[in-house]
């Protein structure tokens, strides 16, 4: 299986406050990895480093074998991102927002329109392409953002708590869509969340706490390691060191 994301020995701090300590992990194509961590665990910082909003002075991050610092163009071409806060322009229509993304990835208008149709249809949003983003509800905005992140056919999809603030049906629908993407399209997914119910049985888990990886592996592996019956208790033990 191809390695889509490789993070090796990453350290990062905000002034004197350490945000990430010696982080190393890999994610393969078709693998859905859930990054679990409480608020302030370092999830968003890790995402900022992978998206190259910040640079880490030591360690390396590679996307599909391309170092994010040395070959940032080749690396970022293979990356799709959905940030925690909505990043759509609410004054523009769905189509105008997606066309902006198409332009940022250098696609022609014809090719772009085709991809927009494919992705919006996948999320049942094509009929609403001429609506202003302002008129969409939270769940639909998120669908548009995920569709946008897939337009340039990335190998790695980063999702930073995309379901926060959504109602239960919207959350369920997005969780299902993303898992289908990983298995059906062989996209590697790194999904930051603190919602345990978004985990599927085949997912890999990465537990981050106070900037350190506390556990990494399949659900069974983590349950075995922590001697717990469910992920919620295992997470509690890993992050507090106590029994639930």
């Amino acid at each position: 299986m191809k390695t889509a994301l490789s993070v090796k020995n990453i350290n990062f701090s905000y002034g004197k406050k350490t945000a990430l300590k010696n982080i190393s992990f890999t994610i393969n194509s078709g693998e859905c990895t859930l990054l679990l961590g409480a608020n302030g665990a370092g999830k968003s910082t890790l995402f900022s480093l992978i998206t190259r909003l910040y640079d880490s002075r030591d360690g390396t991050i590679s996307l599909c074998g391309f170092d994010i610092k040395k070959h940032s163009r080749q690396a970022l071409m293979r990356l799709g991102v959905v940030f925690q806060q909505t990043t759509l322009d609410i004054d523009l229509t769905v189509l105008q927002n997606l066309r902006y993304h198409i332009a940022l990835h250098g696609m022609s208008r014809k090719q772009g329109n085709l991809r927009i149709q494919e992705e919006l249809e996948r999320f049942n949003m094509y009929e609403r392409r001429h609506e202003q983003v302002r008129q969409l509800n939270g769940g639909h905005k998120r669908r548009v953002e995920i569709a946008r992140s897939l337009l340039h056919k990335p190998s790695l999809l980063l999702l930073d708590e995309p379901t926060v603030g959504l109602d239960v049906p919207s959350r369920k629908s997005i969780v299902e869509h993303v898992h289908q993407l990983a298995t059906g399209n062989q996209i590697a997914v790194l999904w930051a969340t603190h919602l345990i119910d978004e985990i599927y049985p085949d997912d890999s888990l990465l537990v981050l706490h106070q900037g350190e990886i506390k556990a990494r592996g399949s659900i069974n592996h983590i349950l075995e390691k922590t001697q717990r019956q469910n992920i919620s208790d295992a997470f509690y033990k890993l992050t507090t060191g106590e029994s639930a």
């Binding site: 163009r73 970022l76 990356l79 909505t86």
Partner: peptide, 14 residues
Amino acid sequence: EMGSMRILMVCPLP
């Protein structure tokens, strides 16, 4: 601050 700048910054160009 709102995050939409990130969409531009993760574009694969210098």
